[in-house]
Design a protein around this nucleic acid. Structure first.
Lengths: 131, 131
DNA sequence: CTGGCTGCAAATCTTTTGCATCCTG
DNA sequence: CAGGATGCAAAAGATTTGCAGCCAG
């Protein structure tokens, strides 16, 4: 993959596989999800390698870590500023586009650098299923 | 503590101790933090009991669980709708008061029930320390 | 060729579970 | 006095670490 040549990381097959799995992925997968997916192509890959790769991609700004799920970290290849809808029934996480730039009234001297909004609710599927 | 008589839970000394520790507490403690604090008064209390108590308090709407910290859950006795400033240097979490009720343009059929905003940045102390 | 990367196993940390005993209502 | 609550130990998950061997640049 040409486009990854200049990210400052060695392009190992494992790293490429993770990058390709994440590319355009909107499912907010956990490390385990990524592990299972990449394992199909690299049966010997280790979960520790997945964590290593995610850590280096995070440092390079190619993924961001989401703390939305109380049970595990989720990873998002979309590093632009965006927010999330979280279904409290099925746990599904969906991106939401919205412009939002509140001028934070000075608060405790904080210098705000990033805003993340979480909209908790019930998704269409769960609503219609009466769940 | 009179005020806790009608919450529909047996008022054991351990539960009261947790409730008292949490009352007005703005530090967003983890289960471990609460355990250490309560242990001073009840040296035999178990961490499992802390988790049990927090679970029942959560069910009764007396605390809410925060997924802000990637390493562990945090608990907040303030169950009213409010948002948080998170210092990316020292990890401190501070409440922020602000009215915010965006009418979510229909999004994927979600019925939004609760909004939580996270403002990541650097707190006054860390700024001045040049951290 | 060499430093960064991988794979494996063991360790760590948080949270949960099973169960016998206890004590509030 | 009965059912919920506690305390202990062990289990379960997620993530991290140590280290020997490997391979991309």
């Amino acid at each position: 993959m040409e486009k990854y040549k200049n990210i400052g990381l060695k392009l190992t097959p494992q790293r490429l596989a993770v990058l390709q799995y994440l590319e355009g992925n909107k499912s907010h997968p956990s490390a385990e999800d990524i592990y299972r997916a990449v394992k199909r192509r690299f049966p010997t890959i280790s979960i520790a390698t997945i964590y290593n790769i995610l850590e280096s991609l995070k440092e390079k700004g190619l993924v961001q870590e989401l703390n939305i799920d109380p049970y595990k970290k989720r990873f998002d290849p979309d590093t632009t500023s965006h927010h999330h809808l979280i279904c409290t029934k099925c746990g599904r996480i969906v991106d939401i586009e919205m412009d939002f730039n509140p001028s934070l009234p000075e608060n405790e001297g904080f210098r705000v650098e990033r805003i993340h909004m979480e909209f908790y609710g019930v998704c269409k599927d769960c609503s219609s299923k009466g769940k």
